[in-house]
Lab assay of single mutants.
Amino acid sequence: MDGTRTSLDIEEYSDTEVQKNQVLTLEEWQDKWVNGKTAFHQEQGHQLLKKHLDTFLKGKSGLRVFFPLCGKAVEMKWFADRGHSVVGVEISELGIQEFFTEQNLSYSEEPITEIPGTKVFKSSSGNISLYCCSIFDLPRTNIGKFDMIWDRGALVAINPGDRKCYADTMFSLLGKKFQYLLCVLSYDPTKHPGPPFYVPHAEIERLFGKICNIRCLEKVDAFEERHKSWGIDCLFEKLYLLTEK
């Protein structure tokens, strides 16, 4: 054995408090879109979701699917093309516009009456609605409950000090017999300040354990050449399924 860690023996890093005071403002996230600093976007979609999607959907149609901090995630069109209703929230209007443009979807925009100064973008087909606002303002819009949440790049982007508020927001959107698919990253948080932030299993239990059954479905090596600039040499991604207790 050469000592290389595999996707099945990932350790939890003990120094989980080192990132707790890290803060990125909404304006800084918007600047990332304006300046093209969106390496977190996956042009081909998320491979773990693609692998498990049909198993999760079980042939159902007409589900309501929520994408927190959606950006221009191509997976939104995957669900819409399968007959589901997609709702996303994203602070960057540019990111939302790029989604519709890159997916060749016509759309309209209208003000969100409950949140002055914000807009919702709706596909002409009517099954994709993307709200351009802070996720913490979203419950004011009465958008209803969801059958499924796809959380990739959301919890790991939320400032650590806001995670409890974020989890409570997610709980307010969950319908009966929900499936909450959650991706988190595992790396040494003493070497990279984030975002994306390190979210250990214990944190998921703390945030969601009282209401959800929590199961880790898969762990994969997600390290890429660009991650060397973070000062790390190891990065794993974990896919969790959260269901109603």
Rank of each mutant, 00 (worst) to 15 (best):
S14E: 07
E43W: 06
K145S: 11
P68S: 01
P116N: 07
W150Y: 11
L239G: 02
M148H: 06
Q47T: 10
M170W: 01
L94P: 05
G153P: 00
L94A: 07
L185V: 12
M148G: 03
R163G: 00
R64Y: 02
F171V: 10
K245E: 11
K122H: 02
V156C: 10
F67S: 01
D188E: 08
V23M: 12
H84Q: 02
P68A: 04
A154N: 01
D233L: 05
N142Q: 11
E110W: 09
K219T: 15
F208D: 00
G161D: 12
F67E: 00
C165M: 06
K58R: 14
L138G: 00
S106G: 11
L130K: 01
E102L: 10
W33A: 08
T169P: 00
K50I: 04
D81E: 12
Y166T: 00
T101Y: 09
I232E: 04
D15C: 07
E218D: 03
L94G: 09
I149R: 00
E218V: 07
A222Q: 12
D168K: 12
R64V: 04
C212W: 04
N142C: 14
C212G: 10
Y131H: 09
V89L: 05
E75D: 06
P193G: 10
L105W: 05
S229C: 00
C216S: 11
F79Q: 00
L174W: 11
C234Q: 14
E110M: 13
K176R: 10
A73T: 07
V23P: 13
G194W: 03
D151E: 02
I214Y: 00
M1D: 07
D2P: 14
S108G: 08
M76G: 01
P195F: 03
V18E: 15
Y187R: 04
D81H: 04
G153E: 06
I128D: 00
W230T: 12
I214V: 10
Q22Y: 07
A80Y: 04
V86N: 00
I135F: 00
F146V: 05
G45A: 09
P195A: 05
C216F: 14
R206V: 07
D81S: 11
K228I: 07
K37C: 11
R206G: 09
Y198S: 04
N159P: 02
L181E: 01
K219E: 15
E237K: 01
F79K: 00
Q42F: 09
R64N: 11
L217T: 04
C165L: 11
A222S: 11
G175F: 09
A157G: 08
L182W: 00
L207P: 02
L242T: 00
S7Q: 14
S92A: 03
I211F: 15
S125W: 14
N213F: 10
L185C: 07
G153D: 15
Y166L: 01
K32T: 12
I128K: 00
I232V: 08
K191T: 04
W33S: 06
C165K: 04
G71A: 05
Q44M: 10
K72I: 04
H46Y: 08
G3W: 13
V156Y: 05
P195K: 00
F79G: 00
E114I: 02
T38C: 09
V65P: 00
Y131L: 14
V34S: 13
C234R: 08
F178S: 09
R163C: 02
P193H: 14
G83S: 06
K245C: 06
R215P: 03
V23Y: 13
D15T: 13
R140F: 02
A202I: 03
K145A: 06
K228D: 15
T169C: 09
L53Y: 08
F197L: 03
I135R: 00
G88T: 00
W33Y: 03
S85A: 12
E225M: 03
V86Q: 00
E224N: 14
L241K: 13
T16Y: 07
Q103W: 11
K20S: 15
Y198Q: 02
R140P: 05
R152P: 04
T243V: 05
Y180G: 00
E203P: 02
K32R: 11
I135Q: 01
G62C: 06
G144Y: 03
Y198R: 08
L53S: 09
D221M: 04
D168N: 15
T101I: 13
T113V: 09
R82I: 12
K37F: 05
K77Q: 11
G126F: 07
L241C: 13
E205H: 15
L26M: 06
S124F: 09
S106W: 10
L24E: 07
A157Y: 05
L53N: 02
E28T: 07
K50D: 09
S85H: 14
P139A: 11
I211D: 15
M148Q: 02
G175V: 11
W150V: 06
E98T: 15
V74K: 02
Y240T: 01
W150R: 00
H192D: 09
S229T: 02
Q103D: 05
K122G: 03
I149L: 10
I112V: 11
D31R: 10
M76R: 01
A202S: 14
L49Q: 09
I214P: 01
P68M: 01
T169N: 02
G83K: 02
H201R: 12
R82L: 14
C132G: 08
G126V: 06
N21M: 13
G83D: 02
F223G: 09
R5S: 12
Y180V: 07
K245F: 14
G194V: 03
S92Q: 02
E244D: 04
F56V: 11
T16P: 03
A202L: 04
T16V: 08
E224Y: 06
G175Y: 15
L105R: 01
F197R: 03
S61M: 09
G144R: 06
S7C: 14
L8D: 15
I211E: 03
H227M: 12
L241S: 10
S124G: 13
E17L: 10
R5T: 12
T113D: 14
T243W: 05
R5Y: 11
Q97W: 07
S7L: 08
E244L: 12
M76I: 07
L53Q: 05
R226G: 10
W33L: 06
I211V: 13
C234D: 15
R140E: 10
L181K: 00
K176A: 12
E109C: 15
A80C: 12
R152I: 12
L174C: 02
I204E: 01
R152C: 14
E224I: 10
P116T: 07
R206E: 08
L24Q: 03
V65Q: 00
K37D: 07
L239E: 02
H46G: 06
L26N: 10
Q179C: 00
R5H: 14
D81R: 05
E12Y: 02
N127A: 06
W33V: 07
Y198P: 15
I10V: 10
L241R: 04
T169H: 14
P116V: 11
Y107M: 09
N127L: 11
E28K: 14
P200C: 14
H46R: 05
K122P: 02
V34G: 09
Q103T: 06
K122N: 04
D147W: 01
H41S: 10
L173C: 13
L63K: 11
Q103Y: 11
V34F: 14
F40I: 06
L207W: 09
L239C: 08
K238M: 15
P189E: 06
G45Q: 07
L239M: 08
G161I: 07
F67M: 06
F40E: 10
T190S: 14
E17M: 12
L207K: 04
K72P: 03
T113S: 14
F100Q: 00
S229Y: 15
E11P: 12
F208T: 04
Y166Q: 01
G194Y: 13
H84C: 08
P139F: 13
H201F: 11
H227V: 13
R206Y: 15
L130M: 09
N142V: 09
L105S: 05
D162I: 02
H41M: 11
G3K: 05
D81N: 08
I143Y: 02
Y131I: 12
V156W: 09
Y107K: 02
V86K: 01
T16G: 13
G161R: 12
V74D: 10
P200L: 01
D168A: 11
T4W: 13
L48S: 08
L49M: 13
F121T: 01
C133I: 12
M76N: 01
Q97R: 11
K177M: 06
K119V: 04
I10T: 15
T6E: 12
D2Q: 08
E12I: 06
W78P: 01
I214Q: 02
